[in-house]
Design a protein around this nucleic acid. Structure first.
Length: 416
RNA sequence: GUGAGCGUAGCUCAGCUGGUAGAGCCCCGGACUGUGGCUCCGGUUGUCGCGGGUUCAACCCCCGUCGCUCACCCCA
């Protein structure tokens, strides 16, 4: 048997309906903030991610789906969407257009990792990017937007954590102070931390090993090392978040795995998730466009994991679909059924019917299994009288209704 | 890439210290010739993940392999 590729999955109804509802909420919420959708290719030149995300990051060194096309060009299936958006913005000079400064995307992303709960090789992200404005109010407003979205879809227990990772001016000063402080207690740290101390000192702060915590608590706080401009930015962000009524907690230890972040970084976790509890993450990336060959251009964005978002949503109550199953049986009733289905759909009802003869008993059984709320029976009696039998599968009640009443009733149910 | 757990009917699983497979659900039909669910009756479904080894005999023990799941790393 041919099966889906490891870490990928098929989505069918009714699960796919939950995805559609979340996507609808995204389109509606972001539109109210003046964001427009952008759709970029899944396939990008490998170079884009190497230069954008950073050639030493885990994503680039071991998690990319990279291959050569028939002409020998190295292509990569996007592991995230910010670099692709940045590429499109540079390529089409969108940074010159006030209309295209606020973009959002919805789509699949690919990372070659061992799948586990909340992590897949093909996963889906919803993300937003603001280009061309370095002001801290942008950070706050964009965070507020995504929190509004999370509220609209009903995420359980979201918590915003913010931090600043400084800029190319002040970060090196902090990093050396951090290394100096931790060097003394290196022998007490876990193996991973000792390794990270050399390769990526900031990530030591993110260690979850309990025995490391006392030493990490003694580490200096980045907030104390920010340069004047970065400190001002951070203060202004916090003030704006308060005005926008976005609850947040400062988390001086918060760092992120991509190289392009400057100043603001933030994460939203949900208590409803498992070990992979980061629901969304993002931050400011004022140097990214230049990194990939564009002009100096400020940027801020976030991305959220669709699969994780859905796990953090309450399970919908099981209820019957507001659909109608049209059952027909008896001489000449098929033609009448075709015409009735046409009229009911024209009125707005959702109607399914069989095109092969089937007894009422069998039809009712299928309607029940299909989980529809209503069944319309069209037998020889109904064909003669013009009054159709409507049955409510939830209660078992039945009525004899004319075409008009039937249409009105069933169409109303669809919206209800 | 590393570690652990699990692979038996379409699904969820049972199967004792080895003696060549079972339940529930689902599906189909009937009781109920124009009415689903509830009840009762009858029926269909398996290379026990795959390959090898031990044994008179392997779903069970051993080795390998593939797959799934969870966790680590890291991240959405």
């Amino acid at each position: 048997m041919i099966t889906a590729v490891k870490g990928t999955q098929d989505l069918v109804f009714p699960e796919v309906g939950r995805w559609q509802a979340v996507e609808r909420a995204a389109h509606e919420t972001f539109a109210r903030y003046g964001f427009t959708e952008i759709r970029t290719p899944v396939l990008e030149p490998t170079e884009l991610f190497v230069r954008g995300i950073g050639d030493e990051t885990d994503i680039v060194t071991k998690e990319m789906y990279t291959f050569q096309d028939r002409k020998g060009r190295s292509l990569t299936m996007r592991p995230e969407n910010t670099a692709g958006v940045a590429r499109a913005v540079v390529e089409h000079r969108l940074y010159e257009s006030p209309l295209h400064g606020r973009l959002y995307y919805i789509g699949p992303q690919f990372r070659y990792e061992r799948p586990q709960k909340g992590r897949y090789r093909q996963f889906h992200q919803i993300g937003a990017e603001v280009l061309g404005d370095p002001a801290p109010g942008v950070d706050a407003e964009t965070i507020a937007m995504v929190m509004e979205f999370l509220g609209a879809v009903g995420v359980m227990g979201p918590a915003v954590q913010v931090n600043s990772v400084g800029c190319p001016n002040c970060r090196p000063i902090y990093v050396s102070a951090l290394k100096e402080e931790l060097a003394g207690s290196a022998q007490h740290l876990c193996g991973d931390c000792r390794r990270r101390l050399e390769t990526n000192p900031l990530r030591v702060l993110d260690c979850k090993v309990p025995t490391c915590q006392p030493y990490l608590d003694k580490a200096p706080s980045f907030t104390d090392f920010l340069c004047e401009a970065c400190a001002e930015h951070h203060d202004a962000l916090r003030e704006a978040l308060e005005i926008l009524r976005v609850p947040f907690v400062p988390r001086p230890r918060l760092v992120r795995g991509l190289d392009y972040y400057t100043r603001t970084v933030f994460e939203v976790t949900s208590s409803a998730l498992g070990a992979q509890d980061a629901l969304l993450g993002g931050g400011r990336y004022d140097g990214l466009l230049e990194q990939i060959g564009g002009p100096a251009c400020a940027g801020f964005g976030w991305a959220l994991g669709m699969e994780r978002l859905l796990m953090a949503l309450p399970q919908p109550a099981a209820s019957r679909l507001p659909w109608t199953y049209l059952a027909w049986a008896g001489g000449g009733t098929y033609r009448a059924a075709l015409a009735l289905a046409r009229d009911l759909r024209a009125a707005g009802a959702v109607v399914v019917m069989e095109h092969t003869a089937r007894s009422f008993k069998s039809g009712l059984k299928r309607a029940d299994r299909m989980n529809v709320r209503y069944v319309v029976l069209l037998g020889e009696e109904e064909a003669g009288s013009g009054r159709f039998t409507l049955k409510d599968m939830a209660t078992g009640e039945q009525w004899a209704l004319g075409r008009e009443e039937l249409s009105r009733h069933l169409a109303e149910e669809v919206g209800a």
